[in-house]
């Protein structure tokens, strides 16, 4: 069994677009963007270049669900970012192709926002 070596970097969301811009110039390929939300938002951006796998970790509070988009550097990120917008109720700024929360039409608004075992949705929720 091969366990791939994976590299991590933690950075602030304000520094994200610049860092991603550098990666794009260096020729890294965007592999995936993964959002998760437990105590706080944690967004992972993964890139790949010459078999090197690098993930950027961006964490921020639930009270301030705003994130800069990286579609300036990687247009292909629009699908991930629209998905996060729908599932987590995040607000992406500078998103190039914005579905405004209509990428998925869901039975429940922002289903990934509430963490188990807390079943009841937060009062007020996140407005669209």
């Amino acid at each position: 069994m091969m366990i791939e070596e994976q590299f991590w970097e933690t950075l602030d969301r304000a520094a994200l677009p610049a860092r991603v811009g550098t990666l794009a110039k260096e020729g890294w390929r965007l592999v995936q963007i993964c959002g998760s939300c437990h105590e706080a938002f944690e967004i992972l951006y993964s890139f790949d270049k010459d078999d090197r796998f690098l993930s950027l970790r961006v964490a921020f509070s639930k009270d301030d669900p705003v994130l800069p988009s990286i579609t300036e550097s990687y247009f292909g990120a629009f699908s991930y970012e629209n998905e996060m917008q729908d599932l987590f109720g995040l607000k992406l700024t500078g998103l190039k192709l914005n579905f405004n929360g209509n990428f998925y039409r869901l039975a429940k608004k922002n289903p990934f926002l509430d963490t188990p075992p807390a079943v009841a949705p937060a009062p007020g929720g996140v407005s669209s």
Binding site: V31, Q32, C34, S36, H38, F75, G76, F78, S79, Y80, P116
Partner: peptide, 17 residues
């Protein structure tokens, strides 16, 4: 139980192209 499980499937990545 897992805390987070995420799949990035090939078709999702192939939509922008």
């Amino acid at each position: 139980n897992l805390q987070r499980f995420r799949v990035r499937t090939p078709t999702f990545a192939n939509l922008p192209p």
